[in-house]
């Protein structure tokens, strides 16, 4: 049987979780069971059903996130359900939990998986390696398997079914950590899940000029990102820094404004489906990695893009 971890953020299942559900339905034959901690909001379970999940098990009685506790409780439920392959969306939370589940289930695990497996001879997945500079084909040899898929890399395929919801009590395993505070970047789209990302570099000259970047992002429904020097200088929050030493992203569209295109930057963004580079220097290396390019001053180009994007919306 195939399972997924249905991570919920404030009661909602994000798109990445639906991708995991869709992936699971495509590799599984038979029942698809989702496990979630706490209760989702009304109507959320139906979203999972759209992608083939037949059963949702909600674990009650866990008060706060603790990787050790989540790992045990989630693995417990999966094992009791007879699950032998589990799909996670590769979020931060999953990175803390999925490997722990794989150990408890004695499973083979692969993270950063970007395609459905090839199962004609064993169970072979394709995963991203070398920070965007390569892919590997890995066979998962153990009978049990844990797969963590990269958000935005697999297709969402509708496969509607009806869903049964069950609630069970946690077995009460104890953790050793206490969360003392949480700060959320209010209301914004998380960078790792964004389908469109508008990113800017040192070419923007200073933090006071980010208004245009944010405005374009807002109109396009995009998340914002930046190059390393920009976050190092404190122009933008650390969480926006993409690249080799920052976050690796794989949006459908990446728009780079005033970023030179250094290899360490490209390492984090080169798997984007479509890349647009805007730079006043025609020799900027980013143009070699881009699908579309505009040679021009960001301070003149951005207003034009903003008004065109506004017009296109209406």
């Amino acid at each position: 049987m195939t399972g997924i971890y249905a991570e919920n953020s404030e009661g909602q299942f994000k798109k990445a979780v639906l991708e995991a559900a869709s992936y699971a339905s495509q590799i599984g034959n038979g029942q698809i069971v989702a496990v979630c901690v706490g209760q989702p909001n009304a109507g959320e379970a139906d979203k999972l059903a759209q992608y083939g999940v037949n059963k949702l098990i909600c674990i009650e009685g866990i008060s706060a996130f603790d990787a050790q506790v989540y790992g045990k409780e989630i693995a417990n439920v999966l094992i009791n359900q007879g699950v032998n392959q589990v799909v996670f969306a590769n979020t931060y939370e999953a990175k803390s939990v999925a490997p722990r589940v794989s150990v408890i289930m004695n499973a083979s695990m692969a993270s950063n998986v970007i395609e459905l497996p090839e199962t004609s001879n064993g169970f072979k997945v394709k995963r991203g390696v070398f920070s965007g500079k390569g892919f590997a084909y890995v066979t998962l040899d153990k009978a049990n398997k844990v797969i963590a898929i990269t958000p935005n890399s697999t297709e969402l395929k509708k496969q509607a079914t009806s869903i049964q919801i069950e609630t069970i009590q946690s077995s009460g395993s104890a953790g050793s950590t206490t969360i003392t505070s949480t700060t959320k970047a209010g209301g914004k789209i998380p960078l790792t899940e964004a389908e469109i990302v508008v990113s800017a570099g040192r070419g923007m000259k200073g933090p006071e000029n980010w208004g245009m970047v944010e405005e374009l992002a807002e109109i396009l429904g995009a998340a914002t990102a930046c190059s390393k020097p920009v976050s190092d200088m404190g122009w933008r929050p650390h969480g926006e820094h993409v690249g080799q030493t920052g976050i690796t992203i794989k949006p459908n569209l990446y728009i780079a404004i005033g970023i030179s295109g250094a290899i360490q930057h490209l390492a984090g963004v080169s798997s984007s489906k479509v890349i647009v580079a805007i730079n006043k220097d025609p020799e900027a290396p980013f143009f070699k990695a881009a699908d579309y390019g505009i040679v021009g001053d960001a301070f003149e180009v951005l207003p034009k893009l903003i008004s065109a994007a506004k017009a296109a919306k209406n």
């Binding site: 143009f287 881009a290 579309y292 390019g293 505009i294 003149e300 065109a308």
Partner: peptide
């Protein structure tokens, strides 16, 4: 890469 003239940057959106 397909280049778009900066004067007509709005064309990119289209």
């Amino acid at each position: 890469v397909r280049m778009i003239d900066a004067e007509n940057a709005g064309q990119l959106i289209d």
